[in-house]
């Protein structure tokens, strides 16, 4: 039987611990708020892409600042909590996880912003493999959604379930990669928009990866154990496998 530290916390009566509890709760609330913004950014960026709505895309880009501001706030508060309250065991794991999750959610927001930024470039393109992209986005967004739900509920089972879906996103990426390549070979005019769409797919793939990272941290914070290494979808594209784009 694995040790679960969480029920212990509810029984504490110490004033300092009650303060710590309240602080951690607020921290978690702020992370959820940030996650909600990131989720909305993915949804709206994809809607803007499908509708070729440059204005809606610009809104997504502007709103990313709010996510960045929240990350700074979380960082500051998490460090403060660690310094001032000196949490131990589960509480410490929670504070550290908050710090790390905030960073990852900020990256997810960046990828959504990057998708939005590409909307004007594909606005007048005639290629439509875009039909696969919304489906891929749906799975990636669902992973983010469920990872955040798992975080809010401290639910390691739900978190583990998120990591299993990463392979599906990778498969989508590979299939979109091939279909866009075909479009480029058919007609050189397609190269520019197809490249942008390729980056959109890449961003979605990274969002899926980061949702998995969040889920892994949730699992660790809740159980104190690391999730077994997940099975990766075969990456047949092997281009820029680890690049970070901002």
């Amino acid at each position: 039987m694995k040790t679960n530290f969480w029920p212990l916390r509810a029984k504490r009566s110490d004033a300092a611990d009650a303060g710590l509890e309240a602080e951690l709760d607020r921290l978690r609330g702020t992370i959820c708020e940030m996650g909600g913004l990131a989720e909305a950014a993915i949804r709206e960026a994809m809607e803007a892409l499908v509708r070729r709505d440059a204005e809606a895309a610009a809104r997504v880009v502007r709103r990313d600042r709010k996510i960045d501001a929240l990350e700074t706030e979380i960082e500051r508060r998490a460090v403060e909590i660690i310094g001032r309250c000196a949490p131990t065991a589960a509480d410490l794991r929670e504070a550290v996880a908050a710090l790390k999750i905030a960073g990852v959610v900020e990256r997810i927001g960046d990828y959504a912003k990057n998708i939005a930024k590409r909307v004007p470039s594909v606005e007048d393109s005639r290629i439509r493999p875009i039909s696969l992209l919304p489906e891929m986005a749906r799975i990636a967004a669902e992973m983010v959604h469920d990872a955040l739900d798992a975080f809010a509920a401290r639910d390691p089972k739900k978190a583990a379930a998120v990591t299993e879906r990463d392979a599906a996103v990778d498969d989508f990426y590979n299939s979109i990669f091939r279909s866009l390549l075909t479009h480029m070979m058919e007609n050189p005019h397609n190269i520019t928009p197809a490249t942008h769409l390729l980056f959109v797919a890449r961003n979605l793939e990274r969002i899926g990866d980061h949702a998995t990272n969040v889920a892994e941290m949730v699992y660790f914070a809740a159980t104190g154990e690391y999730l077994a290494d997940r099975a990766k979808g075969a990456d047949t594209t092997a281009i820029g496998a680890d690049e970070r784009e901002k």
């Binding site: 709760d25 978690r28 609330g29 702020t30 959820c32 909600g36 909305a40 955040l148 809010a152």
Partner: peptide, 11 residues
């Protein structure tokens, strides 16, 4: 008993 944003995180 928890922060409401844990329940509803919509912006």
């Amino acid at each position: 008993g928890s922060d409401v944003r844990l329940a509803i995180r919509h912006p």
